[in-house]
């Protein structure tokens, strides 16, 4: 392999990494938001991504909607499920310890996954059959779907940024993440803010799930499989920090894809795990600095 080919190949893998990184980021944002406010690792987040992907399938296949209309629908439906989960399970455990919250979220994860299997079956599914030709720039191939994933993620991150900095509810979310007790004595209705946090985290997860379904295919375990990279990204970026989650997602995505140039793709999750452990050992507050 000559030098020019290697550079093209390398850049090609970086593009795949960015696409995967976008998907991971959308999950990591939610994990990070939830951890920032409720101080527990939400293990059902991967399955929330799956659920979003399957709601997307309903929009695409059953309702025959165009993709841009599928997103708000699936994101809204997933947000409602998250809100219902909070109301029915997590809310009652709020005053318990983070470990109890964590274990209950593992239970919620199993429930969601089983429900998906019951409704949609265990087989692989796809949104659209057929192959779309990639665009080619200087030998680099990029599919329209991949461009959409990168563009869509960028739009969602910008919207979330605006929400967190320009709206009353968004600012209250940041305030709760800073200091829940102070938010309470200030008179902020913390339960309402927590409710919105779940909705936003779940909506982001749903978008990530749909992108994952577009990039690969749908199956009930897709979200559980991506959970480890999502956690790794949230930790690498600095947990509780939105921009950290995005950076962490891109980092994990790119390194995972690059690793396939030297080791078998089967080790991709191990690479995410290794980055997570390295970050925890050498920089536990993450790239951008997050919460303890």
């Amino acid at each position: 392999m000559d030098w020019g080919c290697f550079v093209i190949e390398f850049l090609q893998v970086i593009i795949y990494g960015i696409v995967l990184g976008c998907i991971i980021s959308l999950g990591a944002i939610g994990v990070s938001l939830i951890f920032g406010i409720l101080r527990f690792a939400h293990f059902a987040h991967g399955d929330m991504m799956s659920l979003g992907a399957y709601f997307g399938l309903v929009g695409v296949v059953s309702l025959q909607l165009p993709m841009y209309a599928v997103f708000p629908l699936a994101m809204g439906a997933t947000a409602l499920v998250a809100a219902a989960l909070d109301r029915s399970i997590y809310r009652w455990l709020r005053s318990s310890t983070p470990i109890i919250m964590l274990i209950s979220s593992v239970g919620a994860a199993l429930m969601l996954r089983s429900a998906i299997q019951v409704v949609w079956g265990p087989d692989n599914k796809i949104y659209e059959a057929g192959i779309k030709l990639p665009y080619i720039f200087y030998g680099l191939r990029i599919k329209p779907d991949q461009l959409n994933i990168i563009f869509g993620t960028a739009v969602l991150v910008v919207l979330l940024h605006l929400f967190l900095h320009k709206t009353r509810m968004g600012k209250a979310m940041r305030a709760l993440s800073d200091n829940m007790d102070l938010a309470q004595v200030t008179g902020i209705n913390t339960e309402r803010v927590i409710f919105w946090t779940w909705m936003i985290a779940a909506a982001m997860a749903a978008a990530g799930g749909i992108f994952l379904g577009i990039d690969t295919r749908l199956n009930p375990i897709m979200g559980w499989r991506i959970l480890l990279p999502v956690f790794a990204a949230a930790i690498a970026g600095g947990i509780g920090n939105l921009y950290g989650a995005v950076l962490g997602g891109l980092l994990i995505g790119i390194v995972q894809e690059l690793s396939t140039m030297v080791i078998s793709p089967a080790y991709k999750p191990a690479v995410a795990f290794a980055i997570m452990v390295l970050m925890l050992v050498f920089r536990p507050t993450g790239i951008l600095g997050g919460k303890e």
Partner: peptide, 13 residues
């Protein structure tokens, strides 16, 4: 205070 919020946002809260 809310450390990551700006002074103005603290007052808004």
């Amino acid at each position: 205070v809310f450390p990551s919020l700006t002074v103005h946002e603290n007052l808004e809260m």
